[in-house]
């Protein structure tokens, strides 16, 4: 059965943009995990996750961010999030994600953070 989830990937000035579309739950999280893993193994550790079309996230999806973030930061990179809808943001907020991840209103703002060379506030 096709799942209501897809990831569109692009690259802008050495930054990987992963645009999530649909729902990220225990069923679809392995797809997202595999994509992050692939970039990490290739040393592409500057990642923006565009959540503009993400309609739902559960802990399985949040867990993907959490399980990779330390290693990515150790390699000098980061995962920054952009364009999160209020509905999805409330789930991030319940778990205290805004203190752990930089969340920006859109992709250019998240990219600017990378170009400014800033880490986590």
């Amino acid at each position: 059965m096709p799942t209501n989830f897809s990831i569109e990937q692009s690259e802008q000035s050495g930054i990987q943009i992963l645009s999530l579309d649909g729902y990220l739950d225990a069923h679809t999280a392995p797809q997202f995990e595999a994509v992050i893993q692939k970039h990490l193994e290739a040393g592409r550790v500057r990642i923006i996750v565009d959540c503009g079309k993400l309609t739902y996230i559960s802990s399985a999806g949040l867990g993907v961010f959490m399980s990779f973030i330390e290693e990515i930061r150790e390699q000098g990179g980061d995962i920054k999030l952009a364009s999160i809808s209020p509905k999805v943001y409330q789930v991030f907020e319940v778990l205290g994600f805004p203190e752990l991840f930089q969340i920006e209103p859109d992709i250019p703002a998240a990219a600017a953070r990378f170009h400014a060379g800033s880490g986590v506030d």
Partner: peptide
């Protein structure tokens, strides 16, 4: 969440939710 990140674990979040 901080403890889980430190341990590179992602389990236990669902329960918190």
């Amino acid at each position: 969440v901080e403890e889980l990140v430190r341990q590179r674990r992602s389990g236990g979040l669902g329960l918190r939710l």
